[in-house]
Design a protein around this nucleic acid. Structure first.
Lengths: 239, 239
DNA sequence: CGTTATATTGAAGTGCGTCAAAAAGTGTGG
DNA sequence: CCACACTTTTTGACGCACTTCAATATAACG
C-alpha cells in the first residue's frame, strides 16, 4: 500500500526498515474514491491526512468569477494534505480527477511519529517542502512562461514524477484529466490550451489527448520547456 | 531579536516559555545585509537557516530570457529558508530588497529541536507550510487574477502580514522595493505594473510609490481584490 | 445508436508586452 | 547649494498572446 510512497522517499533519502514499519503502523483505513469527487473542502477541520495510493488528484482554489486555479497535482505515492497535519484545515479543496485509492493517516499517529522518530519526522517535513518547491516552479510557469512552454514544462514534470514511482512506459503515460483541467493547472482557458497542445504536437514534441500523454522527443521537449529537474530534489538525479 | 518571530508564531499557536528559550538557544550569529544582495544562491549547500529580523527580502527564480519571478516576499519575523533545513539546498535564490538584519540558525541545532521538542518542531513545520499556503495564493493570483486585482491582493496580504508583527501605521506601511520588483511578484512588466498602480490610485483604493504604500480604503481594496485572509492561518482572525 | 463529454476551429476583442523616450526623484561630489 | 549621473516612475504607440463567444466535430458510453 505504501510502496510508491517509499519509492518516492527513497529517491531522496534513506528510509530505515523500522521507519517503514512506523509508517505502516500509522496508516489507517483505505478508501476508494470515484472520479471528480471532492475529498476535502477548504476550511473543514482535519484529523487525518491522506496518502494517494493510486490515481490522480488535484488541489485547487477558485475566484467568484468561477475561474479556478489548480495549485497542485498529485500522483500515486504523494500525500495529498500532509500539510493539513500542522495547519489543521486547508485553504483549498482537494479533488480526485480519476478514480483513486487513498490511505488515511490519523493525526494522533503522526503526532506520535514527531515524538518518537525525529528522522522520519524530517522526512515527512521534507515531503511538504517538496510540494512547496513544486508550487514555486508553478509560480514561475504561471507568471513568466508562455503557454506552450508552460504546457511542455508540466508534461516534463509529470513524466519525472511518474517515473520515480514506476508509472512511465515507453515515452507514454496516463494523465486522466481533460484539457479544461490541464489548462486550469496552467492558468489558460480550454480553447487556448487546445491550441497550445496542438503547437506541441506540430512541433513534434508531445501529444496529450483523452487522458493519454505521448512524448515524441524528450530531449527537445525539455529544451523547449527549459526543464531543470533540480527543483524535484532527486538525490540521485535519475532521468 | 526573535520578538517578531514570536509575534508571528503566537498569532497561530501557543509558544511555551521553554520553547522560546529553545529557539533563542538555537540562534547563532546575527548579520547585517545591504540592499539587493543575494544571500543564498540556488543549489548551494546549506548548513544553517536564516531568520529575517528586520528588512525585506525575496526569493526568486528566473528564466534564460531574463524574465524573473519573485516567488515569495519575507518580512521581519519570517524564516527565509527554513525549508532548506530539510531540503539541504534551494531551488531558488534569496535576495535582500532593502538593508536587512538576519539571524542564523545552524541546522545541527534545528536537528536537536526535532529530537527534543516535538511541539516546537511542529510549529516550525507549520511555518514552512504557511509559506506554501502563500505560494498557493500567489499561484491563484498569477494564474487567474487580472493585473489590478493581483496588485490589490498583494497589498492586502502585506498589510495583514506586517500588521501581525506591528509594522503598520495609520493605513500606511513601508514596502522598500521598486515597481519593477513589485511587478516581478505579480508576473507583470514594470510598464504594466505602473498602469495597474495608477488604476488603484484613481479608484481611490491604494497608492504605492518610492517604497511607501498608502491604503486609502481598506474595505473597498479587500472587496476589489477578493481578499480572504483565511490562507494566512491566523488563529484569532485579527484584522 | 443516441446522448453527453471532450476536443477543435473561427472570428473578434482586450490585457499585457515591447520598444522608446521623457519626466521626476535621489544621491554624490565639487 | 548646485551640477551631474543614475535610478525610478510615467507616458505613448504598436503588436501579440490569450480570452471570449459561438459553433462544429469527434470520441466515450450506457
Amino acid at each position: 500500500m505504501i510502496e510508491k510512497l517509499l519509492l518516492k522517499l527513497r529517491a531522496r533519502d534513506a528510509v530505515a526498515p523500522e521507519e517503514e514499519e512506523a509508517l505502516l503502523g500509522a496508516m489507517g483505513e483505505v478508501e476508494d474514491i470515484p472520479a471528480r469527487k471532492t475529498v476535502v473542502k477548504r476550511g473543514e477541520t482535519l484529523n487525518r491526512s491522506m496518502l494517494l495510493v493510486e490515481g490522480l488528484m488535484c488541489r485547487f482554489k477558485d475566484l467568484r468569477s468561477g475561474r479556478r486555479q489548480i495549485t497542485a497535482l498529485h500522483v500515486a505515492g504523494d500525500f495529498l494534505d500532509l500539510h493539513g497535519f500542522t495547519l489543521k484545515h486547508l485553504d483549498h479543496d482537494v479533488m480526485s480527477l480519476a478514480p483513486c485509492r487513498i490511505a488515511l493517516f490519523p493525526h494522533d499517529r503522526l503526532t506520535r511519529i514527531t515524538e518518537e522518530r525525529p528522522h522520519l519526522t524530517r522526512l515527512l517535513w521534507f515531503s511538504t517542502n517538496l510540494d512547496a518547491a513544486i508550487h514555486r516552479e508553478w509560480e514561475l510557469s504561471l507568471g513568466q512562461r508562455t503557454g506552450p512552454s508552460k504546457a511542455a514544462h508540466l508534461l516534463c514534470e509529470l513524466y519525472t514524477r511518474l517515473q520515480i514511482v514506476g508509472l512511465i512506459g515507453e515515452g507514454r503515460f496516463d494523465l486522466p484529466m481533460n484539457q479544461t483541467e490541464f489548462g486550469e493547472c496552467l492558468g489558460l482557458t480550454v480553447v487556448h490550451t487546445n491550441r497550445v497542445l496542438r503547437e506541441l504536437r506540430e512541433r513534434g514534441l508531445a501529444h496529450f489527448r483523452n487522458g493519454k500523454v505521448r512524448i515524441y522527443d524528450m530531449e527537445r521537449l525539455r529544451a523547449f520547456a527549459e526543464f531543470d529537474p533540480t527543483y524535484l530534489y532527486l538525490a540521485a538525479l535519475a532521468r
